[in-house]
Design a protein around this nucleic acid. Structure first.
Length: 227
DNA sequence: TGCCAGGCCGGGT
DNA sequence: ACCCGGCATGGC
């Protein structure tokens, strides 16, 4: 059985063991559930602290209104946009955040995600910094956009990741985003497909087996790693 | 009924 | 550098 000593000595091996165990238990998760890259970006903003089922309703509304395209989202009045995305919660805040992103996209990239995601002269970190300048896009939303829309190898950290891996002694409670992200980035092969599946699997296991304040380890596939 | 969901911002200490 | 309140709907 995997001991904590082993994972302390070799976090790379331990993290891959976790991944293999999750993949065997749950299989491929098929993330991100969006048809287009813009849909992924919109979903990443709408799902901030919000259940995905609510986001789906909002996205269906946007499609129904014919607004799930750069021009549509750019032109629609923010009040109407808020009404359409209402099921996603925080609808006034999120309507403004979508508008912020669209302004950014048109201001510097002609409304084209292809241009935004195309590699320029600088290193890949420049794009992350630029996206983070958009008001309403923080580290997790930025990394979700980079991984699931731009298909770049940025590991996404969320509340599930912190909960599962603090429960297993990899990080402290209240660990900073950058610190836990570094743990994954420095101990896994830099592979966007791996990061994609791994994050989705963490969310999957966290939803059922690692709830706040009452971890249900009984049937969790990761219980074999606990001492 | 209350808790939680694939966060982030702005203001205060 | 932290800590906190605000933002809001829908499912179990």
């Amino acid at each position: 059985m995997k001991s904590n000593a082993r994972k302390a000595e070799n976090p790379a091996t331990a993290l891959m063991d976790y991944y293999e165990t999750l993949f065997r238990a749950f299989g491929p998760q098929g993330w991100w559930p969006g048809r287009t890259r813009l849909e992924v970006v919109v979903g990443a903003i709408l799902t901030q602290n919000t259940a995905w089922t609510n986001v789906e309703k909002a996205i269906r509304g946007l499609k129904r209104a014919g607004l799930l395209n750069p021009e549509g989202l750019k032109k629609v009045r923010v009040e109407r946009l808020a009404g359409i995305i209402r099921p996603a919660g925080y609808f006034n805040v999120k309507a403004a955040r979508l508008k912020n992103f669209l302004r950014f996209l048109f201001k510097d990239y002609g409304g084209s995600l292809t241009k935004l995601f195309s590699r320029g002269d600088g290193d890949g970190d420049d794009l992350r910094k630029k996206i983070l300048e958009v008001n309403g896009i923080g580290p997790e939303t930025a990394d979700s956009i980079l991984l699931y829309a731009a298909r770049r190898a940025e590991f996404v950290i969320d509340a599930y990741t912190k909960r599962v891996f603090s429960r297993h002694g990899f990080v402290e409670d209240g660990v900073e985003y950058g610190d836990i992200k570094r743990l994954f980035m420095e101990n896994l092969p830099r592979d966007a497909a791996l990061f994609n599946e791994y994050h989705a699997l963490i969310v999957r296991v966290g939803k059922v087996y690692c709830r706040p304040k009452k971890p249900l380890c009984r049937d969790c596939p990761l219980k074999v790693f606990l001492k």
